[in-house]
Amino acid sequence: MTSSLLFNITTFAYLVSMLCFFVHLASRNEHIGTAGSYTAFGGLLVQTVAILLRWKESYDLGMGHAPLSNLYESVVFFSWTIVLVFAFVDFKFRYRVIGAFVIPFALLGMAWGQLGLDSGIQPLVPALQSNWLIYHVITCFLGYAAFAVACGISIMYLLVTRTGLEEEKTRKGFLSMFPPSSILDEINYRAIMVGFPLLTLGIVTGAIWANYAWGTYWSWDPKETWSLIVWFVYAAFLHARFTRGWVGRRAAWLSITGFAATIFCYLGVNLLLSGLHSYGGN
């Protein structure tokens, strides 16, 4: 049994899960929705084992490091955190249909990792040889995952409130499966309320590490600046909750903008711009 095989099983599980959720949306069959959730949880379990196994495999190869060191490993971990956060939301709010808008992010990550990226275990470059790597990456990606879930929820919110009419009258077809818009708004807010402290921790651990490794806690490197941009967008979102005129669809758009900035911070900076994190690229 190798981690690579388990990652393939994980990807397949997320694909099946996503299809279940789509069928659930179309057919309104509760059992298929439940199957979608449980397939995702199964995938999460397999992926957890796979990540631990890959960690062990790196020791067997004499390199010994946490599987958080390159683009492939980070995208796999990102998928893992998205499904983890989805599992929490699913247990807490019990709206299966949310899976149809969240699991695709996880599947996209896994599929890209498995098909498009070099999955070889690489030795750790000197710059990354620090325990701060683990704290920094885990906090950042848990935050990103919460934002991914918030983004999926916001898309649902925009779909539900699209017509601007009273919801009950316009909820036909697959929209009838959606939670009420007030609940979507609430989950969106709650997800960002969890993601924001995690992002803050991620930025702070990054600053501590940078200071320890390079002697500068903040150097306006593009990655740092973009993480701050993401922080600003969600800070605006959270403050907007207290003002009239910035709730509802505007808040949903702000949440989607925040996630777009998050993705640019994670991928765009590595692939398009240069800086201290460029070793994360490929």
């Binding site: 600003f232 800070a235 910035w246």
Partner: peptide
């Protein structure tokens, strides 16, 4: 002003 500044800063 806070929200405007956050958006301007980003």
């Amino acid at each position: 002003l806070t929200i405007s500044l956050f958006i301007i800063l980003s």
